[in-house]
Amino acid sequence: MNTNKIGIIGTGFVGMAAAYSLFQQKLANEIVLVDKNLDRAYGEALDLMHGQPLVGRCEVTSGDFSSLKGAGIIVICAGASQSGPDESRLQLLQRNINVFEMIARELDQYAPEAMLLVASNPVDILTHAMQRLSHRPDNLVIGTGTLLDTSRFRTLLASYYDVSPQSIHAYILGEHGDSEVPVWSSAAIAGLAIRGNTINGREYDQEALTGVVTRVRKAAYEIIANKGYTNWAIGLVIAYIIRMVRNNQRSVLPVTVRLNGEYGISDICLSLPTVIGSEGVESIIAPKLDEEELAGIQHSAGTLKDSMNQLV
């Protein structure tokens, strides 16, 4: 897999946050921006590449799908926007599926061996759609999943316990959406379970920690209400996943993958801890869950299945 060349489809807020993160972290020698708005993609590429003397050499160009030939990883941030207040979520989803049909066809022609990283929402359903539409193996099609939710979770827990977020070991799993599941049964700091223990002088407070989960679930709504969109953190998430692939780190990340019997769930894409390396998905790790968490994961799967069943 040639991870020196990375493509980004969609040069909106998320696509360009991803491009900026990749550029600044020097994770590619070449970044190709593809967008139906050719002028915008060209302008974004020109603007970004002028920072090379400050960061390091990285060719940033714009083009069409044929320009993605030879790319090892392609990030999909494209998608239709709501056409008006009367358009339902299901109608919008169906239009996005239609967009993905076109993208899959083009990518199978020009970059059939590339790993695809889906960031468009709803990421779980669109990852499943891309796996179905593309001819490449499922291990090369993953979604950003609940890695962003997990990052938010760890950030808020770190603030509560006054420690570094990197010292928090806790996951949000399931759907990247309202049915996501906090896994308290294995959440820990320095090997000490958060549930029921005093850590760094803070006593266990179930009400306060329930509030943390509520803030995680409402985070995107809050950000969108204030600035109109989310982009910076998901851009960093995309860059982080790509770094794990590029360096074959075999890191365990909560990303969107297709389940094959885990927790009794099959043919549904949602987030579980997944080993990510140079070949994309290496394996899925299904942690032991308590009854409430297991029910939550199964509810997540049911929610996603209901949405998929309504598609044409």
Rank of each mutant, 00 (worst) to 15 (best):
Leu126Asp: 10
Asp64Pro: 00
Gly177Ser: 09
Glu87Gly: 06
Asn2Met: 06
Trp184Asn: 05
Ser266His: 10
Gly235His: 03
Tyr204Pro: 00
Ser164Phe: 13
Asp162Met: 08
Leu140Ile: 01
Ile73Gln: 12
Glu291Ser: 15
Ala188Asp: 10
Arg258Tyr: 00
Ser164Asn: 15
Ile224Phe: 07
Ala239Tyr: 06
Arg243Leu: 00
Val34Lys: 08
Cys77Val: 04
Ala239Ile: 12
Asn231Gly: 13
Asn309Ile: 02
Ser66Glu: 14
His176Gln: 13
Gly7Val: 00
Glu293Lys: 04
Leu107Asn: 02
Lys227Phe: 11
Gly12His: 08
Ser266Cys: 03
His169Trp: 08
Ala170Gly: 10
Ala119Lys: 02
Trp184Phe: 15
Gly51Tyr: 13
Thr150Pro: 09
Thr303Gln: 08
Gly84Thr: 01
Ala80Gln: 09
Gly264Gln: 02
Ala233Glu: 13
Val216Asp: 01
Tyr110Phe: 15
Tyr42Lys: 15
His128Leu: 07
Ser62Trp: 05
Gly191Ser: 04
Tyr160Pro: 00
Gln109Asn: 03
Arg105Thr: 13
Lys36Leu: 11
Ser134Gln: 04
Gly235Asn: 07
Asn37Ala: 06
Arg202Asn: 05
Leu156Glu: 01
Leu236Glu: 13
Asp205Ile: 06
Ala187Leu: 09
Val99Asn: 14
Leu54Tyr: 15
Leu148Pro: 00
Leu117Arg: 05
Leu311Asn: 12
Pro165Gly: 05
Val14Phe: 05
Gln206Val: 02
Ala295Glu: 15
Leu38Thr: 08
Val213Phe: 12
His299Met: 08
Arg40Met: 04
Ile73Cys: 14
Val75Asn: 10
Leu117Tyr: 15
Glu106Phe: 10
Thr150Asn: 04
Tyr229Gln: 06
Leu90Gln: 15
Arg250Ala: 11
Ser185Trp: 08
Ser283Phe: 04
Thr198Ala: 13
Leu90Gly: 07
Ile97Gln: 01
Asp64Phe: 04
Asn247Arg: 13
